[in-house]
């Protein structure tokens, strides 16, 4: 998937290897070994990063987050997609587009 494509609910997401992650005061801070760039994922972003250690669909991800956090699934989905698109632009995740079957 390219960074300009819209992520759909059945698309599968997994994080890429090669990042050093550390917890700092409840937030996750990360360094990409490949690019040398540093990132702050924040607390919610850090939880998403944990969840995508194993491949799962966007829909599954939203369901888990909506169960853990005080957020409506629809609004959660919009914000998670925006976050994942940024991760994709930074080449930090892989997304497998669903075949639609």
């Amino acid at each position: 998937m390219t960074a300009s494509t819209q992520i759909n609910t059945n698309d599968r997401v997994i994080r890429k290897e090669g990042n050093l992650v550390s917890d700092m005061g409840g937030e996750k801070v990360m360094m990409s070994i490949t690019s040398g760039k540093y990132y702050n994922l924040g607390s919610t972003g850090g939880r998403i990063w944990e969840l995508i250690a194993e491949e799962q669909t966007l829909d599954q991800l939203i369901q888990v987050l909506a169960a853990e956090y005080d957020i409506e699934p629809e609004r959660c989905g919009e914000q998670v997609v925006s976050f994942l698109e940024h991760l994709l632009r930074e080449d930090l995740i892989d997304i497998t587009v669903s075949s639609g079957v």
């Binding site: 760039k37 990132y39 005080d70």
Partner: peptide
């Protein structure tokens, strides 16, 4: 028991 939601944001840090 649900945690407070904060919109996830990826902050690129300038070292």
């Amino acid at each position: 028991e649900k945690k407070e939601w904060q919109a996830p944001v990826l902050e690129v840090l300038d070292v």
